[in-house]
């Protein structure tokens, strides 16, 4: 070829690219700080269970909130069409709660309103996440994934006293 080949980039555009990259790096840093320094994390992979038997044996046969030691709780939650088991839990303010959530039928979602607890519930998988709630009040947990006709009616309450 005889024509001159060059990557012509307008100086204004060059600066725009720099600015864009800088902006994205800044956002990524903010996210990493929140995630890895402050400990606001997303769920990671847990154990796998058999959705056909999970509601019959083991902790989800008798789902609910249990005190491990003072101020430390675990909550086994079973999602099914179209309710959460249990429907209501009560903990003292300042408690650390570890949720173990699974489904015995279709996919569901679990979102504890006004907190960062928000997970997908996939049959065969256990969604595990730990939170600490300091503020007393009634926190609703709702199903956030379409799970059938009465999906809108699927919710429960966590009472923090």
């Amino acid at each position: 070829m005889t024509t001159k080949q060059s990557m012509h980039i307008d100086p204004y555009e060059k600066n725009w690219i720099r600015l864009s990259i800088g902006l994205l790096v800044m956002f990524a840093a903010a996210v990493a700080v929140a995630g890895f320094a402050l400990g606001i994390q997303v769920p990671t992979s847990e154990q796998r269970v058999d959705p056909k038997t999970v509601a019959e044996v083991g902790p989800w046969a008798n789902p609910g909130l249990r005190e491990l030691s003072p101020g430390k709780y675990e909550a086994y939650v079973l999602a099914q069409t179209w309710q959460f088991m249990p429907r209501e839990m009560t903990v003292p303010a300042g408690s650390e709660i570890t949720f173990y959530i699974t489904s015995k039928d279709v996919q569901h979602g679990f979102k504890l309103q006004d907190t960062n607890l928000n997970v997908q519930i996939v049959p065969g998988q256990v969604s595990k996440l730990t939170i600490t709630i300091d503020e007393p009040g009634e926190y609703t947990y709702i199903c956030t994934e379409y799970c059938g006709l009465a999906h809108a009616a699927m919710f429960g309450k966590l009472i923090v006293e």
């Binding site: 491990l68 030691s69 003072p70 430390k72």
Partner: peptide, 14 residues
């Protein structure tokens, strides 16, 4: 005991 089993090993009993 509660602190060891419940708090430390995170295993429930009551």
């Amino acid at each position: 005991l509660k602190y060891v089993i419940g708090g430390g090993f995170e295993t429930y009993y009551e």
